[in-house]
Design a protein around this nucleic acid. Structure first.
Length: 189
DNA sequence: TATGAGATCAACT
DNA sequence: GTTGATCTCATAC
């Protein structure tokens, strides 16, 4: 499997996001196949970077190919991959993966046995892989991150509106692996 | 199946 | 003081 390098992310978020579906995402050797992501662009009212640079979203304004980790609802952590040329402040939110590597670790961290619920949601992904604040602003092409392109085999990518936001709710910027049972929510046909 | 509350924190008004 | 790019558990239908 080919390693994903930083320049992979130096494109439009809307090109990178569907390309990540089916890719392998490991963190410290734990993880699996990406089955669901959402794209956020700085011109998008739902994006953290929309209102300009702040201390929290600073890494979104940096070069592509880095991680942006933030706390959600005071409880959860969520990971993003920064995209596009530096300064465009765009990112892809990792919403769900299909757990494949380090299952025992993930089950222990999540306190769950049900593999379907291990990583089916942005907060769950971070809990299962052990990602938190400390991992904000790290390069994605160096440990503990490990990203592989999907195999040459084509995948069917489903598209739909994003989840859990109140602005720009109609933009179809959620991408998922069609028919996967590990999605945080099914896509409407 | 569906809705509702609670957990808990940092950015922003 | 209010509001989330959320999840879990409880209670109601």
């Amino acid at each position: 499997m080919a390693l994903i390098r930083r320049d992979f992310f130096a494109r439009s978020v809307h090109a990178v996001a569907p390309d990540l579906i089916g890719a392998t995402f490991l963190f410290g050797g734990v993880g699996g196949r990406i089955v669901e992501v959402e794209a956020y662009h700085h011109t998008d009212p739902a994006a953290h970077s929309f209102g300009g640079r702040t201390e929290r979203n600073a890494v979104m304004f940096g070069p592509p190919g880095f991680s942006y980790v933030y706390r959600s609802y005071g409880i959860h952590w969520c990971v993003n991959f920064v995209c596009e040329p530096e300064g465009s402040a765009s990112a892809v939110l990792i919403r769900a993966i299909e757990p494949l590597e380090g299952l025992a670790k993930m089950r222990r961290r999540r306190g769950l046995d049900d593999d379907r619920l291990l990583c089916s949601g942005p907060g769950r992904v971070c809990q299962a892989l052990g990602i938190s604040r400390v991992h904000n602003g790290l390069p994605l092409d160096a440990p503990p991150f490990e990203l592989h392109r999907r195999s040459r085999k084509a995948v069917e990518v489903a598209i739909g509106p994003r989840i859990g936001i109140t602005k720009a709710v109609d933009q179809p910027w959620r991408y998922g692996l069609k028919g996967s049972r590990f999605l945080s929510k099914p896509f409407r046909a």
